[in-house]
Design a protein around this nucleic acid. Structure first.
Length: 439
RNA sequence: CGGGGAGUGGCGCAGCCCGGUAGCGCAUCUGCUUUGGGAGCAGAGGGUCGCAGGUUCGAAUCCUGUCUCCCCGACCA
């Protein structure tokens, strides 16, 4: 993409409304624009990041055996009346009336609808277990939206729903999602810590929040120092179809203490002593088991293997996709701007032509741009008629992992400069070598 | 929802108290010079001051109402 033809409104100063660093940077780097309280338009650059994150989530859901579908944003109130949640949900749900005076709502979640759909379309225990998911916009009329996309009213969420014959089966589905979540966040360059969370009226231990450590986090969290170690997706490699191995994995990942403020265990913390860490955290995912909470009121029963009717049990599993954009920036930035982890970066390379009016420079940059594109490298080519300093500042702000600089100085010596945004390391090398390194 | 604050060119702000017909920085456009970390000089364009009513000869400024946004708190992907 040529920057001269792109839509990337970057600014030196953020609007006064923005408080936290990710919100400021998202506005300055031209990722989003606010259109109402807690509602955002995703500009081209932000949209690319959102899609990258969404795709990683999708791949890991698929790997875990979940099946993608898509449900609507607008739901009939009847789905919610059938589960008894229409009156229970409260003002956070945006209620709408259509021209026939039918009650509709903008979905804040989809348990009610999906359970009804799944119930009507499944016939026996052979249709279980299943995990279905979709990635769709939600609306929750938050009392006070804030922190940009971190607590918006409209947000993109991946929500999955499992259906199993019994609790033992549900635990397997739960474990699949548990492992998938750790891999998902690790692939985005995030260290997410699974923390015991409230299970509500169901009880049990099958509820975890996945927390990213960041000073701007909304909740205070406490954990064993072992979670400070960096981990990659490979550290979370486990065969989702190997039930036993999966349980061993989950047990290992929940062995070390980690709790949110609400679930603190003073005795456990005292036992940790100096190994206890405390931080602020951002919740990027939440998984929980809810038993027959929805299948029962919907009278969802299936003939079991022995001919007896069985009420399936389920869980739901959410990831805040749009929130992750903010969370990643909170976890990865410096004074100059965003530092995108490569897997979620909107472009891999920022190609800078230092002197647009220099024929040799322009020719070399055009050539390298064409070759990068041909090699399938996602490259943003700054071909604007700007001074070098302005281009460097823009590139640092938008945080692409690699900056490839072509200027008269290097051209003279037959080299280009490659800079790593995260480390600041620069090296001079031939255009061919740079191409090979980036392709 | 309770408490606080703010709406003035794209962004950040001043002007309001002490009414007299809108200003500054950044950004934008043109020209010249410049060109490896947000250039300099000269010139130019762009707002009628959230909206509605009222007071007044005259309202961005005073009064009333209303809408929107932000911050703190209780709640949450």
């Amino acid at each position: 993409m040529r920057l001269s033809r792109y839509f990337l409104p970057v600014t030196k100063e953020p609007p006064a409304d923005a408080q936290i660093v990710s919100h400021k940077l998202m506005l300055r780097a031209g990722l989003v624009r606010q259109t109402s309280a807690g509602i955002y338009a995703w500009l081209p650059m932000g949209h690319r990041v959102l899609r990258k994150i969404e795709q990683i989530v999708r791949e890991e859901q698929d790997r875990a055996g979940a099946i993608e579908m898509l449900m609507p944003t607008i739901q009939s109130a009847d789905y919610w009346r059938d589960t008894g949640r229409y009156d229970a949900y409260g003002p956070e749900m945006l209620r709408i009336t259509d021209r026939q005076d039918r009650d509709l709502l903008y979905g804040p979640t989809n348990e009610d609808m999906l359970t009804a759909i799944f119930r009507n379309a499944s016939n026996s225990y052979r249709d279980l277990p299943r995990i279905l998911y979709h990635i769709q916009w939600k609306f929750r009329d938050e009392i006070r939206p804030r922190f940009g996309v971190m607590r918006g009213r409209e947000f993109l969420m991946k929500d999955a729903y499992s259906f199993d014959l019994d609790e033992a089966g549900a635990r397997v589905s739960y474990n699949r999602m548990f492992a998938a979540y750790l891999r998902t966040f690790a692939r985005m360059g995030l260290r997410a810590i699974p923390m015991q969370a409230d299970t509500g009226p169901i009880g049990g231990d099958l509820s975890h929040e996945f927390i990213i450590l960041a000073p701007s986090g909304e909740s205070e969290v406490f954990f064993h120092k072992s979670w400070e170690e960096a981990r990659s997706a490979e550290d979370y490699a486990v065969d989702a179809d190997d039930t036993e191995a999966l349980q061993v994995f989950v047990d290992a990942m929940t062995a070390d203490y980690a709790a949110t403020d609400e679930k603190r265990d003073e005795a456990a913390e005292a036992a940790l002593g100096d190994d206890l860490r405390r931080s602020r955290g951002i919740e990027v995912g939440h998984i929980f088991y809810f038993g027959d909470k929805y299948s029962k009121p919907l009278d969802f029963k299936l003939p079991g293997p022995d001919g007896e009717m069985v009420t399936p049990v389920g869980g739901s599993y959410g990831i805040g996709v749009s929130r992750l954009v903010g969370a990643i920036i909170e976890a990865s930035h410096d004074d100059d701007g965003i530092v995108w982890p490569e897997p979620v970066a909107p472009f891999k390379v920022g190609l800078i032509n230092m002197r647009v009016d220099d024929d040799a420079c322009a020719a070399a940059a055009d050539d390298l741009y064409a070759k990068l594109e041909a090699a399938g490298v996602e490259v943003l080519y700054d071909d604007r008629d700007e001074r070098g300093g302005a281009k460097f500042a823009t590139m640092d702000l938008i945080g692409l992992p690699w900056q490839l600089v072509i200027g008269p100085r290097g051209i003279k010596n037959g080299v280009v400069e490659l800079k790593n945004r995260a480390t600041g390391d620069r090296e001079e090398l031939s255009a061919e070598a740079a191409l090979e390194k980036l392709a």
